[in-house]
Design a binder for these strands. Structure first.
Lengths: 153, 153
DNA sequence: GGTGAAATTTTAGGTGC
DNA sequence: GCACCTAAAATTTCACC
């Protein structure tokens, strides 16, 4: 891969605002639009730039609640892990999921409009999954920080 | 706010791909480009569409490790919460932070290139913060799911 | 990596339904 | 409030240096 200063600068700018024009990015990165756009295409082809997305405000669309779930499975065989992964990837309420070290197997962030919906999520989704040993929920009172900008370098 | 079907559809499309042309969005949402773009502008003005960003692959840029920190403060006075919030918002390694109910006060996701950097983060950042009672770290082995797409409706 | 022109797209305005 | 059309402005794209 080998990213130089200019690549890092481009990634930083695009992570903050994907609607910047090639001209503006070029100016900020210290080169002209064409090579700038060429670098961006290369970063896209290499998969370093995964995509461009719009960010939606959770509260504004009636989804104020984030719940974190610690999940333990009964067995950690590949088959079990695969089944769990496939399931949560189908469920739109689950926006993040990590395979963890330590006490629990998975950490999930689930987004719901209210507690009733959360109950429904647990009852109709999680509890019907086979192989789940335990679930522990903690509720987020507020989002103190949320960014897609990675600390590159 | 009152989002209708078309608004929800537009938000869904833009959350997946912000580079869609107004024409393509209009086609998929079942209307013509002009009113489609008008709706998008309104969603932006209302703050429902918070912005457009590029997503960067964590591993590709040498940041394979996500660590989750459970943090408890000694006191939960507004002053303490403010100071903590201000600090973590300054630190680029912290990509997510939630104020939580229950045992801990905060849940953080920290992104680092290696364990050495994580140690440095704990030593030079977290441990120098006043008012922190305890920190508990768990490591993510892999990211099973990560999406910005919210389950609207 | 830079320059410049062509092609596509975005954006705004105006009319009728 | 939307569809449709038109036109101008801006941006991306791709030649070549």
């Amino acid at each position: 891969m080998a990213l130089d200063r200019i690549d890092v600068k481009i990634l930083e700018l695009l992570q903050r605002d994907a609607h910047m024009t090639a001209q503006a990015i070029a100016d900020a990165a210290g080169l002209s639009p064409s090579p700038c756009l060429r670098r961006i295409r290369i970063l896209e082809e290499k998969g370093i730039l995964k995509g461009y997305v719009a960010l939606v405000d959770q509260k504004s669309v009636g989804l104020p609640i984030s719940v974190f779930l610690s999940v333990r499975l009964e067995r950690q065989r590949e088959e079990e892990l695969e089944r769990f992964s496939a399931a949560i990837n189908r469920w739109p309420e689950v926006v993040e999921c990590y395979l963890m070290t330590g006490q629990r197997d998975y950490l999930l962030r689930v987004v719901v409009p209210d507690l009733e919906s959360y109950e429904a999520f647990i009852k109709t989704r999680m509890s019907r999954l086979e192989g789940v040993a335990s679930i522990e929920s903690s509720f987020a009172l507020s989002q103190v920080k949320y960014t897609n900008v990675l600390p590159i370098r």
